[in-house]
Design a protein around this nucleic acid. Structure first.
Length: 218
DNA sequence: GCATTAACAGCCG
DNA sequence: CGGCTGTTAATGC
């Protein structure tokens, strides 16, 4: 996974070796908490394999999924940088392997590698763009387009370099991700399938026309 | 009108 | 069996 992560490209062999030695890896079953809101932030998090989501839940019990994060992605640098507790729950959508880079290692990279800083700048900027787009579209797009965008968001080439075309995710989770009911997700997926943009399968979907998905509603 | 919740049967792993 | 899917009916903005 490190080889596929763009930020390792600019590191010296010595830096990479130190990073490699510091990272710990853990396996989580589907539906498990990788970390919880309010916990102290001790690591930068990488999704080696699987799929996780960032959840915020309100006092009234409603829960919103802010982002789905596929394999290949590193996230959580915001809380590490600000030395603040985790702001959201991180939950696995399916069985996942998660890597943890300890905060001291993260800070050491920050202090010693310009390439690493450049990567973080790119990543933060990319995310900013994605979230601004979400807010902009949330109220403007119909549910079909929202579902399409939620799926397409898992394929941002800068943030997620290696997402495979088949995503194992339930329609319920797509609902959380797009802010639409499960039944409406089902309806939207059938429309997208008729248009040849996705193939709907049991417990997952295959994206056939990514540019098409991104185009919907824009 | 359109989306949401609720409920249910059928299917898959 | 438990989870997911596809439908329908009732309810709400």
């Amino acid at each position: 996974m490190l080889e596929l992560s763009p930020w390792t490209g600019g590191l010296t062999p010595e830096q990479l070796a130190r990073v490699r030695g510091a990272i710990a890896e853990r396996e989580f079953p589907a539906g498990a908490y990788v970390c919880r809101r309010g916990e102290p932030t001790t690591a930068w998090i990488g999704v080696v394999d699987g799929l996780v989501k960032l959840n915020a839940d309100s006092a009234s019990g409603k829960t919103v999924t802010l982002a789905g994060i596929p394999a290949g992605a590193w996230f959580g640098e915001g809380s590490v940088l600000k030395r603040e507790p985790r702001k959201y729950d991180v939950i696995t959508i399916r069985e996942s392997r998660i890597a943890f880079m300890p905060e001291p290692t993260f800070r050491w990279l920050l202090d010693t590698s310009i390439a690493f800083n450049r990567f973080l700048l790119m990543q933060l900027n990319e995310r900013l763009g994605q979230f601004i787009g979400m807010i902009e579209h949330e109220r403007l797009l119909d549910p079909d387009a929202r579902v399409a965008r939620a799926l397409a968001s898992l394929y941002d080439p800068h943030l997620y370099p290696v997402t495979e075309s088949r995503i194992q995710i339930s329609q319920q989770e797509i609902g959380y991700l797009s802010g639409v009911s499960r039944q409406r997700v089902n309806q939207a997926l059938q429309v997208l399938e008729r248009n040849g943009m996705v193939r709907v399968e049991y417990g997952g979907i295959t994206v056939l026309d990514l540019p098409g998905l991104k185009r919907i509603g824009s």
